[in-house]
C-alpha cells in the first residue's frame, strides 16, 4: 500500500538522476576507434564473406562430383544385361575379351564392333569344341586360326574389305555349328558343365527342334528356364 508511492518516488528520482548523468556523459568528448582498426574490421568482414562464398562453391562442386559418380555407377549397373553370365575373365586360347576395362567410346567405335562380331563366333566354336567329345563335333568349315587371321589389334585400323570378309566367314562358321548340333549326342546336351550363353543355348534348342528331337528339346527348355527365367525365347521355341 505505502510501498507503491514510495517506489514511484524512487523511480521518478532515478529517472531524473539518469537524465542528468546521461546529459553530462553526452557532453564528454567521444572516443572513436582508430581508422586502422575500422579498416581491419571491415577487411575481416569482407574476407569472411569471400571465404564463405568459396566454401559454398566447393560444397556445390563436391555434391556435383558425388552425384556424377552415382549416376555413372547406376548407368553401368543398368547397362549390364540382367541374368547374363559374366564374360570370361581370362584369355580363351589367346583371345581375351576385356569387357570391364573397355570404355563406352572404345566399345562403340566401328573397329571394336567389328572385332566383337569376329570374336563371338570364334568363342562359340571354341566352347563347342571344348564340350563335345573328340570326333563327334566337326565344324563344316575350318577357319584359319583366329589369332592370326581375324583378330586385329584394337588400336590398329581395319579396312572395310577385311572387315566384311571376316564377318562373312564368322557368320558361315556359326551356321555350320548350328547344323552340326543336330548330330550332337545326348551326352553333349546333358553335360554337367555350367549354363552356356543363352543365345548359344537357344541356337542348340532350335537345332533340336529342326531335327525333331522333341523329348530332348523339352528337357533343354526346362533347364534353360531354370538358368534364365526371364530371358525371352524366340516364338518357335516358346510355342
Amino acid at each position: 500500500m505505502t510501498s507503491e508511492p514510495r517506489d514511484q518516488k524512487q523511480d521518478a528520482e532515478f529517472e531524473q538522476n539518469l537524465e542528468s548523468v546521461s546529459a553530462a556523459w553526452n557532453e564528454l568528448e567521444k572516443a572513436e576507434p582508430p581508422d586502422l582498426l575500422d579498416q581491419a574490421v571491415l577487411n575481416t568482414a569482407q574476407r569472411e564473406l569471400e571465404t564463405g562464398r568459396k566454401r559454398r562453391s566447393l560444397r556445390w562442386a563436391g555434391a556435383l562430383a558425388t552425384a556424377s559418380i552415382v549416376v555413372i555407377a547406376l548407368g553401368i549397373v543398368v547397362q549390364q544385361e540382367p541374368g547374363a553370365p559374366a564374360p570370361p575373365s581370362g584369355p580363351v586360347n589367346g583371345i581375351k575379351l576385356d569387357h570391364d576395362s573397355m570404355s563406352p567410346e572404345k566399345k562403340e567405335s566401328p573397329g571394336n564392333i567389328a572385332r566383337e562380331n569376329e570374336i563371338q563366333p570364334q568363342l562359340k566354336k571354341q566352347r563347342m569344341e571344348q564340350t563335345a567329345p573328340p570326333g563327334e563335333f566337326r565344324p563344316k568349315r575350318s577357319a584359319a586360326p583366329a589369332s592370326e587371321a581375324t583378330l586385329a589389334p584394337a588400336a590398329s585400323p581395319v579396312s572395310s574389305a577385311t572387315l566384311s570378309s571376316s564377318l562373312e566367314e564368322a557368320r558361315e562358321e556359326a551356321l555350320g555349328e548350328t547344323d552340326s548340333l543336330a548330330d550332337a549326342p545326348d551326352d553333349f546336351l546333358q553335360s554337367p558343365e555350367p549354363a552356356p550363353d543363352p543365345e548359344t543355348w537357344i541356337e542348340r534348342m532350335l537345332a533340336l527342334k529342326v531335327s525333331k528331337q522333341d523329348e530332348i528339346l523339352q528337357k533343354e527348355l526346362a533347364k534353360f528356364r531354370l538358368a534364365y527365367p526371364e530371358y525371352p525365347l524366340p516364338a518357335d521355341l516358346s510355342k
Binding site: 567521444k30 572516443a31 572513436e32 576507434p33 575500422d38 574490421v41 571491415l42 568482414a45 569482407q46 564473406l49 564463405g52 562464398r53
Partner: peptide, 21 residues
C-alpha cells in the same frame, strides 16, 4: 550481411562502431 551483402555490414558498422568502442 549474413546473406553476403558487404554494404549492409558497412552501414551497420558505421552505426555501432563508436558506442561499442
Amino acid at each position: 550481411y549474413a546473406n553476403g551483402n558487404m554494404e549492409a555490414f558497412r552501414l551497420l558498422y558505421e552505426r555501432h562502431r563508436g558506442p561499442l568502442y
